[in-house]
Design a binder for these strands. Structure first.
Ligand code: ZN
Ligand code: ZN
Lengths: 483, 483
DNA sequence: CAAGCAGGTCACGAGGTCAT
DNA sequence: ATGACCTCGTGACCTGCTTG
């Protein structure tokens, strides 16, 4: 009734229609670290486009992005960009795509050690080896949450013995199966529907106390306000706990009093059913907090992977500065040694006869390759964090990394994908409310547009492989570039 | 509750992984009507892929399609096909895409005659003229349902879906105008006429409890006894709630029992309410039956457009037969007159000097062009049936038809698109139940894959335009082929 | 009868309490 | 500061009565 309808704000999103962005500063040859940067930069862009912290990377400081600066992404996609970028845009988009393409089935297999057993017969390709590589270079604080939802494996009521917060119901054991979905905040057993959300008694009390505070003076004990609020460690960080409360929708305005509606009760029961069903095959059952956890997890991993070792790159301005610097170095060199401007052939014959890498281009390419390989390793590691990804056939994992479509187990991939779509929808609906549908279409359009890059990618890499024999020393790169 | 979860049936959908389909019988030059056929055929395929009557075209009779024959589409997309097909696959996919790209906002403008007024200044391109052409060649039985949803402007039961507190009405779905003005006290949905006032069950109970009190000992939580009693905030201040009850006239003396005849008055109030309701449209509200109507409508139009004048093409076997026939004719001719096999240049110079169209290829091409234009006209007509499409800027309409992305009003397009996505979801969930999520991903994947065709399309048509000067006589085709 | 409401019932949750 | 437990106002639903 008194619902506030968001007014149509003209954001004007679409492919190719706006001016150039600022990061296309030209760069000698392939631009050295530039490649790695582009990836991160692209993520930034994508995120800015999304208009929310889709990947938890802080929205950039540079361009005063108020509301209408969010078509940078499309520009990147469509406009003439620096020649070497597409490959990494491609990969980047694949990352983005992955997020729409993978996730799930994890929490109930608390043991879950017997997941990878098959597809060990054929000799692995280098990419597959990379994927199969268990000692991930991923250096999280070592506390990666293997279990999404701890809890008891299945139904919440078997261990009613544990604490059973509602002793009131003891007196009248009128069945009533106090079954409820778990606490949306911490994952513990929920005691009811508090402040508009199914939460446990503890989180309810916590939120109530928070409401009473005049000022929220919690401080995050971590660093990024992204502490994981899990069943065991609910009290680790009050700030993040409060944030999560808000995030899941707790509010004084959402209070519901009085007896349950039939509708709601059946909804709860259905959810419980689904949760229990996860053991067999839930088919399409993800509780919201599961999705939430996935989002948090991927978000966190993504940040660590992208900015973990290069935190200063979180700011696009730094990237631009670096590019500028490299470019000036190049100009300097050019002035000092003259513009050699050797063609590939000239350089090759010269190198062949004298053994001299005259303008260091080979060395530079070596560096680029290394940087690239590192990037790919990161990509692979990220992909592996996507629940369900590692359970795919190795070939499929490789195919997805390479953005190919000839999958062995498309059903499984689609299941993963669907879970991620749901995550996206959740995020979008939280951020955009009634406009989330439109935003969803935007995302899909972006994905579809991204497909154009595949063609481009193939074309460019084909030449790349021919022009740079040095690539032969990097089987991983070669495979990524091979269709 | 008693929900049946569909068991995992291995359908194995994905791009490029299965053998050739049966419709690639070769064909002389461009195959004459073959082109038109391909379009229909493709639709068939697409539909078969969907596994339900997505477009109401009867599922083909030929191939005994039980369950695993539904990747024909992907084959069509990915495998080597007859050279001339891609163009039409392209268009065909555009049609499919259109269905995911357009629709809406129609029902409230019952008059809606003043919709097209602007963008009349620039000279229209041929495509735009085609689009703007009002006397559509579309020859439905003349009873095309202009109004999607007739009904009263707003839905009969304002927001029953939202929470419907009184499921008492549920058990007996006797309709009987569950429509009531909202609670006079709090604004929630009223459950009836209580204590002389239309109130909700909650306020009724509250007042009853107040009456039972010996002494009204409420205390205003605010300061001036002027707290706002709104739908969400009903319980914020009992004192002010009580005051409001009194203010709106609730009283033990005003009790009315038994059935009332003066429903006329409430009806009037309802009318007023509705009038108010029309002012705010809920942004993302499509009732299921609205979507249903859209689906039905598009489905119907699509069938009429595709099979209307060529009903015998509903059966793919016929298509194959025709192709076979044409091919044999061609072989026959070849045998009789020898295999001329003139190159373009040879034919052109011969034609230039003698004026003879030696192997009728020009004539044939003329026919093809005509057929093509007819096809495009159909496509345009179909697009125009998509609610909301005709209200887009003409340029955007043209862009969409041509599968371009540089839109003027992307927001509007996305709104249309979103409505169609919802339609798709509805259909999928009906057909596939719990597996609809996966199916949705399949569709999105198909759309994304379809993008690859754009590149192909551009490449091919570029040559086509060069090779066939006769195309210059067909501006519509030319424009469709121009990027 | 059937429609429709006053009043009753009791499942629920907000807020308070207090041992930890 | 936390969270298990308590109290009491709430409100969805029901029962029984009244009326057309
Ligand atoms: Zn909790
Ligand atoms: Zn009320």
């Amino acid at each position: 009734m008194a619902e506030v309808v968001s007014s149509q704000n003209k954001t004007g999103q679409q492919i190719d229609q706006t001016p150039l962005n600022t990061f296309t500063a030209s760069n000698p040859i392939l631009g050295r670290e530039n490649l790695g940067l582009t990836t991160i930069e692209m993520m930034e862009m994508y995120q800015k486009h999304a208009g929310f912290e889709f990947l938890n990377v802080p929205l950039s400081v540079s361009s005063n992005s108020t509301d209408d600066s969010d078509n940078d992404l499309e520009e990147m996609v469509k406009l003439e960009l620096y020649q070497d970028s597409p490959l990494f845009q491609k990969i980047n988009f694949q990352i983005q795509k992955q997020q729409l393409i993978a996730k799930e089935r994890q929490e109930n297999e608390a043991v879950g050690a017997l997941t990878k057993q098959r597809h060990e017969e054929l000799p692995h390709t280098s990419l597959q080896s990379e994927i199969d590589n268990e000692n991930e270079s991923f250096d999280s604080r070592g506390e990666r949450p293997n279990k999404l939802i701890k809890l008891e494996p299945v139904s919440p009521q078997p261990d009613d013995s544990r604490r059973s917060p509602d002793s009131a119901q003891m007196k009248k054991v009128t069945s009533t199966t106090p079954t409820l979905p778990p606490c949306r905040v911490c994952g513990e057993r929920a005691s009811g529907f508090h402040y508009g959300v199914n939460t446990c008694e503890a989180c309810k009390g916590f939120f109530r106390r928070s409401l009473k505070k005049i000022k929220i003076d919690y401080k995050c004990v971590g660093k990024n306000n992204d502490c994981l609020i899990a069943p065991g460690k609910r009290n680790s960080c009050p700030m993040c706990r409060y944030n999560k409360c808000i995030a899941v929708g707790m509010s004084k305005d959402a209070i519901k009093t009085g007896r349950y509606t039939h509708e709601k009760r059946t909804k709860d029961i259905v959810e419980i059913k689904k949760l229990q069903g996860t053991s067999n095959q839930p088919e399409d059952a993800d509780t919201e907090e599961e999705l939430e956890t996935i989002i948090q997890m991927l978000t966190k991993y993504h940040r660590e992977i992208t900015l973990g070792d290069l935190p200063h790159l979180g700011n696009p301005q730094n990237i631009a500065d670096l590019q500028q610097k490299y470019y000036e170095e190049f100009q300097q060199k050019k002035k000092m040694f003259g513009d050699l401007n050797l063609s590939k052939e000239e350089h090759f014959s010269f190198y062949h006869s004298t053994g001299l890498d005259i303008d260091d281009r080979l060395t530079m390419m070596q560096g680029i390759c290394k940087s690239l390989e590192k990037g790919i390793a990161k990509l692979v590691n990220f992909a592996k964090q996507i629940p369900g990804f590692v359970d795919l056939p190795l070939e499929d994992q490789a195919s997805l990394i390479k953005d190919r479509c000839d999958l062995q187990d498309p059903d499984k991939v689609e299941a993963i994908q669907w879970r991620l779509v749901k995550c996206l929808c959740l995020v979008l609906s939280k951020k955009w409310g009634s406009r989330s549908g439109l935003k969803f279409c935007e995302f899909i359009n972006c994905l579809i547009s991204a497909r154009d890059l595949t063609e481009w990618h193939v074309k460019i890499t084909k030449n790349l492989v021919i022009d740079w024999p040095v690539l032969q020393n990097h089987p991983l790169l070669l495979e990524m570039m091979t269709v």
